[in-house]
Design a protein around this nucleic acid. Sequence first.
RNA 1: GGCGGCGUACCCAAGUGGUUAAGGGAGCGGACUGCAAAUCCGCGAUGCGCCGGUUCGAAUCCGGCCGCCGCCUCCA
Length: 466
Amino acid sequence: MGGLKVYNTMTRTKEELVPLTPGEIRMYSCGVTVYDLSHVGHAKMMIVFDVIARYLKAAGYRVTFVRNFTDIEDKIIRRANEEGVPAREISERYIAAFREDIAALGVEAPDAEPKATDHVAEMVALIERLVAGGYAYVMDGDVYFEVRRFPAYGKLSGKNLDELLAGARVDVDERKRDPRDFALWKAAKPDEPSWPSPWGPGRPGWHIECSAMAMRYLGESFDIHGGGQDLIFPHHECEIAQAEAVTHKPLARYWVHNGFVNLGKAKMSKSLGNTLTIRDIVKRHHPEALRLWILGTHYRHLLEWSEERVEEAARALARLTRLVDDASALGAAAGSVPSAFAGFAPRFVAAMDDDFNTPQALGVLFDFARALSEQRDRGLGTPEARADFVAGVAELVRLARVLGLLQRRLEGGGPPPEVERLVGERTEARARRDFRRSDELRAEIQRLGWLVEDTPGGPRLTRKSG
RNA sequence: GGCGGCGUACCCAAGUGGUUAAGGGAGCGGACUGCAAAUCCGCGAUGCGCCGGUUCGAAUCCGGCCGCCGCCUCCA
């Protein structure tokens, strides 16, 4: 078999995925800083890594997936001080919001979701090792990583140290030995939460938390480390430096970074941020339509936000859900996957094996859907035909769920008796060719939230989606 | 200035050396239908930003040019 290939930012090539431990994948992805509601960009990242984890599981790996919460950070502190509440109240509020949003998107929970503030001890321990090893120095209660001591710094982002120095727009902190050095520990300031440390009370720098937590949950070396493209530098570069300076092992074997969601000209954060939060979007669109839209472009590529594109995705999604509706309406038992449909799964796998090529995998799904519709329209008169169709749809659903699509349970609940009665009445009206009455009844049924369509096989009822 | 990416039909988007350039949305024609909807069938780039080059053969490799974008600072 060809095997799964992953694009590794470290080498800038697609590489065959070879786990450190056969049959097992340990992966870490940088989560969010919880100072505000999450937006579309976060949604893309969460969905991308959700799909990667789902696919690895489907491919037979035992997957351990860890995603952190950054719950101590400047913006959280600022917001807390603005509102006059403890930082913890802010972070807890937005962790809860994040969990709701992500659940609405159908993203599976990772195996662990560590918070930075629960792991300060590990961070302090790591910093102590860095200081002891001569990679870090203490200045007035701050601790800095000395970039010069770690020559590999820049290997992930393709930067070299001299250029970094030359173009240094980094804030010139005169206490640092070198402008490129970054903070591991920040001495406590008034109105800031702090933790005790050998260097006095303070709080951790941003980068150290991921090194510490990743190693705490996944070991000194693990398989996949992911995040948004913007994290390549400096965040992941710094993570590597902090970890590898003391372990002398690669922190992660494969670095996976997803492309951004653009909002045209305006910056997503402030002004437009509100209108593009996940919860806002989910009010207007089916979560799976959003997911289909996101997966319709390769994860490493840039996406341009567009209300219109998501609506198109919703229409495409409806083609798949209709098949599911039709299959469940038959109530027939599924047989084994008929040979006519056996070719789709291997094509799907081949697409996903190629650096998680979801656009291509979706193409396979829609080819599959057409084949199923075709068979359905040829006739489902015999029990064998019905069993084949139902089995085919079940196979389609199985594949779609690897992408987190068609997750909705198949039963779905039938129409209420009132609707059933009206449909029956309408069928009679049509039989007498009383089309005026028939159309009245269709309107009536619509008011009750159901759409009735006449198919060669009789009326079909669908719940009207919002 | 450094690093990286993008430019494929009306729109979105796969494909990165070799049969007819996936798929989705929109559109048009047909079948079906009381109407509608859905579905199926058919149609749509002799062409892949532009100009050269390599090759038996390139959207795919090389060179140049044009246009757009991200990162280099907190950021998914």
